[in-house]
């Protein structure tokens, strides 16, 4: 009996240690992701008070709006990642142009590199909020972790529409790639390249599933390709 008590205590201690490690990891990644927009908003608010010309004030007000929106998206992602139903899109599915959606998402990211959209546009049936969020996550990843341009190509598949988002660059290792959809997972490549929560792809996959689709990630030569399949 004493032996089983000791085993139970050891198991409980290990479980508590693991929970503590997870708690620290969550606080660390959330704190990291919050710091830049929060400190930017704080700084821009102070700078706005000191600004004495209209052009600077206008730039700061735009910056405040951008960073407030960024916090809003972050909050939605966190709630969605935690399985909170209220954060899921509530708009009705509609017929959406893939090119239009990805171009709009790209403009929102203000990426310095070019977005390439070869081939014909296709139309999918999905919630506009969900497709825009999926597009933003995949393009943002391509920008942050790739080297240069991002290409979005579309084809018809057996199950509907296939959208491939391909970014150049060596990117993550095979292990990092295989774990990329894990909630809060950030591999060495991600940690040393850009701030983030490690929830974008997990959120994108949940959104795609809710639309009756899938998302996969694979290596193609030196590039990384995210493939989304959605009903036509």
């Amino acid at each position: 009996m004493q032996g089983s008590d000791a085993s139970a205590r050891a198991a409980a201690t290990q479980s508590a240690d693991e929970l503590d490690a997870i708690r620290r990891r969550v606080i660390n990644v959330v704190g990291h992701a919050l710091r830049t927009p929060v400190t930017t908003i704080a700084g821009m608010t102070n700078a706005l008070e000191a600004a004495d010309d209209e052009a600077t004030r206008a730039m700061l007000i735009e910056g405040l709006a951008r960073n407030a929106q960024r916090l809003e998206v972050l909050l939605d992602d966190l709630l969605q990642a935690a399985g909170v139903v209220t954060a899921l899109p509530v708009d009705e599915p509609s017929r959406l142009s893939v090119h239009d959606t990805f171009e709009t998402a790209w403009r929102g990211l203000e990426g310095p590199d070019s977005l390439m959209l070869p081939g014909d546009d296709v139309v999918v049936t999905a919630r506009a909020t969900a497709l825009h969020r999926i597009a933003t996550i995949l393009l943002d990843n391509g920008l942050k972790y790739g080297h240069g341009s991002v290409t979005v190509s579309t084809t018809m598949s057996n199950n509907g529409v296939r959208i491939e988002v391909e970014s150049a660059g060596d990117g993550p290792s095979d292990e990092e790639l295989s774990r990329a959809f894990e909630l809060l997972y950030r591999g060495e490549h991600a940690v040393t390249t850009a701030p983030g929560l490690g929830i974008g792809l997990a959120v994108a996959r949940e959104l795609a599933r809710a639309e009756g689709g899938t998302i996969e990630l694979a290596r193609r030569g030196a590039n990384i390709v995210a493939t989304v399949e959605l009903p036509a």
Binding site: T36, T40, G43, M44, N46, A47, A50, A51, T56, M59, L60, G63, R66, N67, E110, K144, A194
Partner: peptide, 16 residues
């Protein structure tokens, strides 16, 4: 800095 808003803010604050 890769964040355009961080660069914008630092430029305004440091020039000030």
């Amino acid at each position: 800095d890769d964040e355009a808003d961080v660069r914008l803010l630092l430029r305004i604050q440091l020039e000030h």
